[in-house]
Design a binder for these strands. Structure first.
Lengths: 356, 356
DNA sequence: TTGTATGCGTTATCAT
DNA sequence: ATGATAACGCATACAA
């Protein structure tokens, strides 16, 4: 006789075999009855009842580990963050995403495994091999700025369902979901155009984040549709906002510009400075000039005035990631990678001066 | 030949057998090497290295379900929330706890499994059987207001390591971790006593939450130590704060009361109203009366003035829960269930009038 | 309609 | 020092 001496992990829980004994049937029958009989196999109503009764009497509950092993899936979806999964500093940008991830995961019957990546080590260092742990789950969502390309590439090459939250083109073959900044930005411009604005200026920062580039692309795209004179429509501020002064605003208005659009940034600097400059110039918003913000305002000036623009649907981004992952998992090639922003009318955009 | 036709869920996840093939050893040896060789069996350093290399090359990670079955442990710690794990409304009370849970879990080599309880269904309805899924993990933390006693009892009776976050005496045998409101409240009173205050009044709400009861207990305990005249030292406000008026404050002061203590509540009503009443009475704080808050102030009046009192260490609470769970897991009987609050000097308490 | 045999991936025991 | 083998609990192809 071979085997473990004392069944270490046994928790005194009844198994199908015991239910079977009590009901006077085989373990197979128990599995069949309790499994809902997906195969549509015929069963005596009598047997069924006896099994059910026995199971209830013993308080049987299936062992998830065993069940998952037998089906070679565990209905576990991983979430790997390159920083702490519950970061303290960027709490407000991660949390809403996790909300969406959870919601969609629940809807699809998945539980979430939070892989704790680098939290223990210093800074962004992902312990070597740590990434491979995610293979434990059926698929995994990745979250964070700096990704360890090597390890991630291995997962992708092995056809492991990996989805990055946020656009990610560097890593060929890595699935991602992202925000459709292009469309959202274009929509804002079209809204302004609908109000009669023809000369519009975009204020953005000088770094080259994909999110910034996309916004500019959408802005230019919509501007091109207008067909008007659009020279120098985009301003990149080296030091965030430092170049946006009341004088600068007045000069643009003198040139015929009637609307200003700022991009959202971590600090909200562009919007903040634009507001200040317009106020400093003594211009009424939206009476004399219209303003719009490509994103959400910084928390400290959330309400006053509510900016025309769009909101980034972070929760929806999380949900989309889950959908993408489950699609990959099911062998379907891809789901929709882009989530749409919701237009926010706000109170900073009005009819262009000189129009009804 | 019998077996499933197409290995449905296979994702090319490498197993020990493949590592063994690559390393040119048996699967048993792989298990031995990768399992850390707990049995202290002699191994050629050479073999060890080859196995390790092969495992890394293939990106091998153990299957938690299989591990669970064979060894009955998988270094997975569950977190089950009776509401959504990432609730939108109480965001700020859950998040810090999760931060602590994650930190301690990482430190102890556990990954977290978020079991998504009832988020899909209406209100607090936990799907029947949903709770039993947590058995996949080595242990589980429970979080939330209303607990499904029946299902939880079954886990407890089966000796499954379950830890409730928040005091929970209803369910005999259920381990829990909680905040030591008694000591913290007593400490605040003693602090006031040290400043010369002898007549102190506690303002609390009328509901009977454990947290409220504990605070009152600590308050009374410390008051008893003072031995002074303490009749009617506790006021329960039916409608939060409605009874706390400037006139009421003046009456108490006329009786010789020199300090007021409010409990923290969801809405912060008690503290809010106390502040307003004292201001309305035209009394200087802390010159003429001292105030203290048994907890943290509501966010909207966080800074002004910073209340004397204590902070609830929510992150520490999460960490304590993990410690408790791992203790149970290891067979040790219990860890420390109470976490201490940190005293906050604040600026609302000063020497009692008529003292140096 | 029900039972028998087998495999999922891992750990642990017993032979080599 | 390494390999063969038996469980763990469940699901399923196949035989009866």
């Amino acid at each position: 006789m071979v085997g473990r001496a004392s069944t270490p992990g046994r928790r005194g829980r009844p198994r199908q075999a015991e239910v079977a004994r009590l009901a006077g049937v085989s373990q197979t029958t128990v599995s069949l009855v309790l499994g809902g009989n997906k195969q549509g196999i015929a069963l005596h109503e009598d047997t069924r009842a006896r099994v059910l009764a026995a199971a209830r009497e013993l308080g049987y509950v299936p062992d998830p580990a065993a069940r998952r092993m037998a089906r070679a899936r565990n209905n576990l979806l991983g979430v790997f963050s390159f920083t702490a999964t519950f970061p303290v500093d960027v709490e407000h940008s991660y949390y809403p995403i996790l909300v969406g991830v959870e919601r969609e995961a629940v809807a699809r019957g998945y539980d979430l495994v939070l892989f704790t990546g680098s939290s223990s080590g210093p800074a962004q260092t992902v312990a070597p091999g740590a990434l491979q742990r995610v293979r434990m789950a059926d698929g995994c969502l990745f979250l964070g700025r700096h990704i360890p390309e090597g390890e991630l590439r291995r997962l992708v090459d092995d056809n492991f369902p990996a989805v990055h939250i946020g656009r990610r083109d560097e890593l060929e073959g890595l699935a991602w979901v992202g925000v459709d900044y292009v469309s959202a930005s274009a929509e804002v411009v079209r809204h302004l155009a609908g109000l009669g604005h023809r000369r519009i200026v975009l204020v953005r920062e000088s770094d080259d984040a994909p999110a910034s580039a996309d916004r500019e692309r959408g802005f230019r795209m919509a501007l091109a549709e207008l067909g008007g004179p659009n020279g120098a429509a985009v301003v990149r501020t080296a030091r965030p906002g430092a170049d946006i002064t009341p004088a600068w605003v007045r000069a643009r208005v003198a040139e015929g510009v009637t609307a200003f659009v700022a991009e959202e940034t971590d600090t909200g600097a562009a919007w903040r400075q634009l507001l200040a400059a317009v106020n400093g110039a003594g211009l009424d918003v939206p009476g004399e000039v219209s303003l719009a913000l490509l994103g959400s305002p910084p928390a400290d000036l959330a309400g006053r005035p509510q900016p025309t623009g769009f909101d980034v649907p972070r929760a929806e981004l999380g949900s989309a990631a889950v959908r993408m992952a489950t699609a990959l998992l099911a062998g379907e090639e891809a789901a929709e990678p882009l989530v749409a922003c919701t237009f926010r009318p706000g109170r900073t955009a009005g009819p262009a001066p000189g129009r009804p």
